[in-house]
Amino acid sequence: MSEFWAALYIVLLAGFTGYEVIRRVPVILHTPLMSGSNFIHGIVLVGAMVVLGYADTPAERAIGFLGVLLGAANAAGGYAVTARMLEMFERRKEG
C-alpha cells in the first residue's frame, strides 16, 4: 500500500510540474509544444519493449510487436516533426 501512495505523490508532483512548465508559454509556441509533448509520451516505446520482451504466446508477441512498432513511430515521428517546427520558428525569429 505504501508503494501505491508513493506513486500517487509522484503523480501529484509530476502533474504540477507539467502544469507549471507550460503556464506562461507564448501563443506561437502552442503547436510546437503540443508536438514536443507528443514526442515525450513516446516513452511508451520503452514499456512496449518490456512487454514484448516478456511475451510468450504468438498472440502476445504479435500485440507486443505492434506496440513497439507504434511506440517507435510516436517517438521517431514526434521528434522529427517537433525539430522541423522549431527550426522554422528560429529562422523566422532571426529574419
Binding site: 510540474t17 512548465v21 509520451h41
Partner: peptide, 8 residues
C-alpha cells in the same frame, strides 16, 4: 513522463 504530458 506520462503525467507531465497529461497535465501540460
Amino acid at each position: 513522463a506520462g503525467t507531465v504530458v497529461g497535465a501540460a
